[in-house]
């Protein structure tokens, strides 16, 4: 008889622990539930496929217009003159570009000044664009959810 009581007491203790444990932890099981399943419907294979498809709601805002690049404008405006005369006609920022071009021309030792100017400008333009991209990448990286806004199991 005593044995029975002990067994029953242990059983009772375990049951109570189970009840208390369930209440406190509110364990969240990860089940295979799609958004459709929230309504209480059974999840079918079709529903799962649909839930996996995430179509972008907004189309990419890419402009198809032709971009007039800096080197093209220089190409049209440049006369086959010495770089020093061109530099005097341009404003301050352009002077820097011309200075760099002059330097590049000296390194390249080419007779075709116009071609070299154009190439140097193209490289410079591409380099500047890449710098812009790097800045944008930093901004994209910062544009993110905070870690505490991720919903974990057992959370909330």
């Amino acid at each position: 008889m005593k044995k029975d009581i002990v067994i029953l007491l242990v059983g009772l203790l375990l049951t109570m622990l189970l009840v208390v444990g369930c209440k406190e932890r509110q364990v969240t099981k990860v089940m295979d539930v799609t958004i459709n399943g929230i309504t209480g419907e059974e999840v079918t294979a079709d529903d799962q496929k649909e839930s996996e498809k995430i179509e972008p709601k907004e189309a990419t805002s890419t402009s198809e217009e032709e971009t007039i690049t800096q080197y093209e404008s220089v190409e049209n405006s440049n006369e086959p003159e010495a770089p020093s005369t061109k530099a005097s006609e341009l404003d301050e920022p352009s002077n820097e570009v011309i200075d760099e071009k002059k330097e590049t021309v000296i390194i390249a030792k080419s007779e075709n000044m116009e071609d070299i100017d154009e190439r140097a400008l193209m490289l410079k333009e591409l380099d500047e664009l890449l710098e812009d991209v790097l800045t944008t990448l930093d901004a994209v990286e910062e544009d993110d959810l905070s870690d505490d806004n991720m919903f974990d199991e057992g959370g909330d």
Partner: peptide, 27 residues
């Protein structure tokens, strides 16, 4: 290639601005 890349990167950059700051808004 450089000429074409300049145009493509420029278009890429224009598109990037439209999507910046959107996710932090959800916090």
């Amino acid at each position: 290639l450089i000429k074409k890349s300049i145009q493509e990167i420029r278009i890429y950059q224009e598109g990037s601005d439209a999507y910046l700051g959107r996710i932090t808004d959800y916090n």
